[in-house]
Amino acid sequence: MKLSLPLLASVATFALGLIAAPVAANAQSADGIVVYNAQHESLTQAWADAFTAETGIKVTLRNGSDTELGNQIVQEGAASSADVFLTENSPAMALVDAAGLFAPLDAATLAQVPDNFRPADGKWTGIAARSTVFAYDKTKLSEDQLPKSLLDLADPSWKGRWAASPGGADFQAIVAALLELKGEEATAAWLKAMKENFTAYKGNSTAMKAVNAGQIEGAVIYHYYWFGDQAKTGENSKNVALHYFRNQDPGAFVSISGGGVLASSKHPEEAQAFVKWIAGKGGQDILKTGTSFEYAVGKGADSNPKLVPLADLQAPKVEPSTLDSKKVTDLMTAAGIL
């Protein structure tokens, strides 16, 4: 068969393209590490940039949400291209850990972080923390009108008055804590009441913005959204105040952001170095000085002085490794929230 040169060329290019594409896509991880990042993009980018500047190790991010990426790693199993997994909350870390996909962290890494901010098995570590708050419209609610407990929000008197971002891992972590502290039955009942009472927003920022704009009286979110906005223009938080539940209430839950190294990593040394760096002075300093306003968790690391000190939050004791994301999404799906 006689074929013309251009035809041959185009067919060949096409075929080569098909073969080359997967190779090319994987090539980017050949030097440097791939981080499946569920933390705020801006925070991880700041970490990665500083880390690369210091060590010369390139970092490629794949951004997603906690449970999405957690489940993804579980599905990918040993073939995952992830070297490091960073989350905003613990349940997704627990999920990957339970699947046995994490490599043990270097002892030096673990030594940087107090016991209460990492699971006992040493497969991952806390890298930052955030506190649950009730962000409320201070023009509408006085302090005595605030809920004493997260559980109060299930009361019919709160119908139509509060917001949350149920699709996000943040809120799901709070529910996971509730599940851990109060059990399945109480949680299911609370979620059922929540479905009646709450208004769903996509994202905590949006929920806070709605509070600020007077569309809703309060929202269950994390503390740093408010501080972040205040540090910028305050445009979305000027009418908003934060209420900390304290008293070991489920609503006082402090969620631990985690970092771990995948057992399947082809660059274990670099990956270990990255997690160690984040949990160490370099990474924790960025939490103190940067714009993330998350709590630092490293030994002797200070958080941003504007924040209410961690020790004053009277958070309930929750073992991070026991938080069950699957159960939470099932319960939320059953309640019709998802």
């Binding site: 449970t67 999405e68 994301s325």
Partner: peptide, 25 residues
């Protein structure tokens, strides 16, 4: 629809995907 908080099948699928990856729901 995600921006204006209006739930359709597509927004719900994306939300489920973000919670569970490719879960049965």
């Amino acid at each position: 629809y995600a921006m204006i908080r209006f739930d359709t099948f597509t927004t719900a699928i994306v939300e489920q995907f973000q919670s569970t990856f490719n879960g049965p729901a």
